[in-house]
């Protein structure tokens, strides 16, 4: 099988998921509304308080993490619920399916970030914003978040009941290091203390490494769980 066909398959899976999503906007709506409502709750509760940049970075990533967890499992759960998974297994190679699903989830995370982060910066403005650094953190962190969640979604889609609760339990310990690293990097983007900035640089590298390693491992392991 050539690389061309693999790319065609992956792109087809991505486009199919995008089309289905745009028809119902189920995942997008869930994730976006989750992000916005938590943001409103947080900013309302903290309206009178002065918040340090460490706390703001932590809040931002808690919001992003929980919002992502509320919608990223849809890609695989939908296939199992509709009974279309076997057809997908027959019509495309496993890694191509995974690539398409991963691409869709990355797009979803970026969509959420592009709405909730500007909103966050408006309602909880940090002292300074290092745009380049923040941009890097959001992109690398978003890819890592989508990467690990997509694999866990493939696992829990096979479970017989209680999928959404299970998704959270199973994905959380794997995403914990990602969120801690991302918070550290975001702190550097939210203030101009030199040590924070230096830490943020190294955290950014670590984020890239996390995304790379977890995505590679998930591609390797996906073949073992998809045809079963």
């Amino acid at each position: 099988m050539g690389v061309d066909r693999w790319i065609t398959c992956a792109w087809a899976v991505f486009r199919k998921d995008l089309q289905v999503e745009l028809r119902t906007r189920y995942a997008l709506g869930a994730v976006l509304l989750f992000a916005v409502t938590t943001l409103v709750a947080v900013s309302a509760a903290l309206s009178a308080a002065t918040v340090k940049s460490e706390v703001k970075a932590a809040l931002l990533w808690i919001i992003l993490l929980f919002a992502a967890l509320s919608g990223l499992a849809r890609v695989f759960v939908r296939e199992e619920e509709a009974g279309t998974a076997p057809l997908l297994r027959l019509s495309a190679p496993a890694t191509a399916v995974y690539a398409g699903k991963l691409l869709f989830n990355i797009a979803l995370v970026f969509a959420v970030e592009s709405v909730s982060v500007p909103l966050f910066l408006v309602v909880l403005p940090p002292a300074t914003v290092n745009c380049g650094l923040l941009f890097g953190v959001l992109i690398l962190g978003g890819v890592g978040l989508a990467g690990s969640s997509t694999f866990v979604a493939a696992l829990i889609a096979q479970a017989s009941s209680g999928r959404s609760a299970l998704f959270f339990i199973v994905a959380f310990p794997i995403l914990l290091p990602l969120v801690l690293i991302a918070v550290q990097a975001t702190v550097g983007a939210f203030d101009s203390i030199p040590t924070h900035n230096v830490q943020a640089q190294s955290a950014l590298g670590l984020l890239a490494l996390y995304s790379l390693v977890m995505t590679t491992v998930s591609f390797l392991l996906f073949e073992y769980i998809w045809h079963d």
């Binding site: 696992l155 290091p177 491992v217």
Partner: peptide, 15 residues
């Protein structure tokens, strides 16, 4: 899942 999780653990030692 076990193998996937094993890979994620070392990242904590750096953070």
């Amino acid at each position: 899942y076990a193998l996937f999780a094993v890979v994620a653990v070392p990242f904590l030692t750096y953070i």
